[in-house]
């Protein structure tokens, strides 16, 4: 039974692309759509989520043998809420403007399914180092996903990247891209692109052995 479960390295790699939380599992859509209108807010959100995810996975993994099946979700939520509150306070103290810009989306990390999902799937049944590797991998996957969406939206919508102008001066900003519809359009197109590339890649891999 224990041998069936992925190792630390597999967990880490799975999180980045094969089981990417955004493009593969379609979890955490709320921050994905809401805060990707600029790289700065997207990366702050990714950082806060990574902090909460890593801490929650480690704590849940440490106490995994004490969990009672019918009370486990309560323990996850309690743990996650604690770390989210810490992240919220730290942002308000040291990144005040960003904290105001993200507003309620930081407290909403509590209900981000990615974190509950990782606590349930990995941390509640595997050792601490595996849970930590899993959390880091998933956080990287989430960061990559947010970065890709935010790059498209900020470059096309505001002509900037991390607030630095990257488009030629005459570029007409596609304001739609930084507004909510732009989030849906970008997510849909990138999701399609990722699926298409994955399909091409798996077809290529299947074709090779038969050819050889």
């Amino acid at each position: 039974m224990v041998n069936d479960q992925p190792t630390a390295l597999e967990r880490f790699i799975n999180g980045i692309l094969p089981e990417n939380p955004t493009y593969r599992q379609l979890l955490g859509m709320c921050p994905t759509l809401a805060v990707t209108n600029g790289m700065q807010s997207a990366m702050t959100m990714a950082g806060a989520t990574a902090f909460v995810l890593i801490c929650a996975n480690i704590v849940v993994s440490l106490i995994r043998n004490l969990l009672k099946p019918h009370l486990r979700i309560l323990v996850y939520t309690l743990t996650i809420a604690t770390f989210v509150t810490i992240a919220d306070r730290v942002l308000a103290a040291y990144m005040y403007d960003m904290s105001k810009q993200l507003g309620p989306y930081i407290p909403l990390i509590i209900v981000n399914c990615i974190i509950v999902c990782r606590c349930e799937v990995c941390a509640s049944s595997q050792a601490v180092h595996i849970a930590a590797a899993d959390a880091v991998g998933q956080s990287l996957g989430f960061t990559l996903a947010l970065a890709s969406i935010a790059t498209v939206r900020e470059v096309l919508g505001a002509g900037t990247w991390f607030g630095i102008a990257v488009m030629p001066a005459g570029f007409p900003n596609w304001v739609l891209m930084v507004l909510p519809p732009g989030a849906f359009i970008t997510l849909g197109l990138l999701l399609g692109l990722v699926n298409w590339l994955t399909a091409l890649w798996t077809q290529g891999r299947k074709a090779k052995p038969t050819a050889a």
């Binding site: 309690l78 810490i86 005040y96």
Partner: peptide, 30 residues
């Protein structure tokens, strides 16, 4: 059944109180 949740709530609660006490002056200044 519930001892773990009670212990965690106490631990997390005191942790949060400490964070709040440390950061509140900075947030108030902001």
């Amino acid at each position: 059944q519930a001892w773990l949740i009670l212990v965690l709530a106490l631990l997390f609660g005191s942790g949060l109180a400490a964070v709040q006490m440390a950061l509140e002056p900075i947030i108030a200044r902001n």
